[in-house]
């Protein structure tokens, strides 16, 4: 469990994270979403004690990160897939990490095999592709068999097979009851991975909700009627928001298909089409973050 309470980080006049309060629960994969520059990495660095908050605090498993003894056994982190000495071999890199937390040497061999970099383990990481680098980073995060995982853009640079591998890995880790926080700026990477979403925009919390709710929030009903304007008025009275589409159909938000159908029937209005439209998660996510951009533009 990660508890973030009133976290604010300012760099000079720029506010990277703005009064963020959110709890990352164990037993599920929490997708940490937001456009580039929305404060995800800064938040993760604050969780790991790498960056000092301007205000607020972060507790990991009930304690500030810096107070964890042998932190690798509690928290596994991947912050930057390039964050390692290019001249060191993958094996030496992992060995140094393992030794720092008194983990057995055999554990290094285990994670090397687990992430599938056996063939390059004794090569210098300078020549690693971004995908290999990510696998090595994940290996480092898993070394201590931790209760909490904090992974910043772990699928960035992975091939489709690698992406699927990370997905299944995160799924398994969450199913084992661990806390998994994984960031991305792309909704498509989260769609099949996360159970829960925390969305940031300009450092502020935009959404903290189960994946399924994001879909529900942004579903709509498409209805076509020869008496469209009458139907629109009837639906508005029932509490819906209506848009008229270019082809004359109505775009109804706030009511589901059953309710729209009932309103039409009770009003005695004929209906030629009645369709449930689910926005893709991508669209729902864009709608969330665009609102934020507009809001900022108006308030500025």
């Amino acid at each position: 469990m990660i508890e973030i309470d009133g976290l604010t980080k300012q760099y000079g006049a720029r506010v990277a994270v703005d009064d963020l309060t959110v709890t990352i629960e164990p037993g599920r994969v929490t997708g940490f979403l937001g456009p580039n520059g929305s404060g995800k990495t800064t938040t993760m660095r604050c969780i790991l004690g790498l960056t000092r908050p301007t205000a607020g605090r972060v507790m990991v498993l009930g304690r500030p990160y810096r107070e964890l003894s042998r932190p690798m056994q509690r928290v596994g982190a991947l912050i930057d897939p390039r964050a390692r000495h290019p001249g060191r071999t993958a094996y030496a890199h992992l060995l140094a990490l393992a030794q720092s937390n008194d983990l057995p040497r055999e554990r290094v061999d285990e994670v090397i095999e687990l992430v599938g970099i056996d063939s390059v383990a004794h090569e210098r990481v300078r020549g690693f592709s971004l995908g290999m680098g990510q696998r090595l980073g994940v290996a480092g995060a898993l070394l201590g068999d931790p209760d909490v995982l904090v992974l910043d853009e772990p699928v960035n640079g992975l091939d489709p097979e690698g992406i699927r591998w990370v997905r299944e890995l995160l799924r398994d880790l969450a199913d084992e009851g661990r806390t998994v926080l994984v960031s991305s700026h792309l909704m498509s990477e989260m769609e099949e991975t996360a159970d829960h979403l925390v969305v940031l925009g300009h450092g502020r919390l935009l959404a903290d909700l189960p994946m399924a709710d994001l879909l529900g929030q942004h579903s709509a009903v498409r209805v076509r009627s020869p008496m469209a304007s009458l139907l629109a008025r009837a639906l508005e009275r029932a509490g819906a928001r209506i848009d008229v589409l270019t082809d004359g159909a109505l775009w109804v938000e706030g009511l589901d298909v059953v309710e729209v159908g009932d309103v039409a029937f009770l009003s005695g209005l004929r209906v030629h089409e009645l369709t449930q439209v689910n926005e893709s998660l991508e669209e729902a996510y864009l709608a969330l973050t665009e609102d934020e951009v507009e809001f900022r533009a108006v308030s500025a």
Binding site: L48, G49, L50, Y65, R66, L68, P71, M72, A77, I79, D80, R82, A83, R84, H85, P86, L97, S100, N101, G140
Partner: peptide
């Protein structure tokens, strides 16, 4: 300095926060 130049310092200070 190689730790800071390569970003290794991020990893080092994460696994040894004191």
């Amino acid at each position: 300095t190689t730790e800071f130049a390569s970003g290794m310092a991020l990893v080092s200070l994460t696994v040894a926060p004191r």
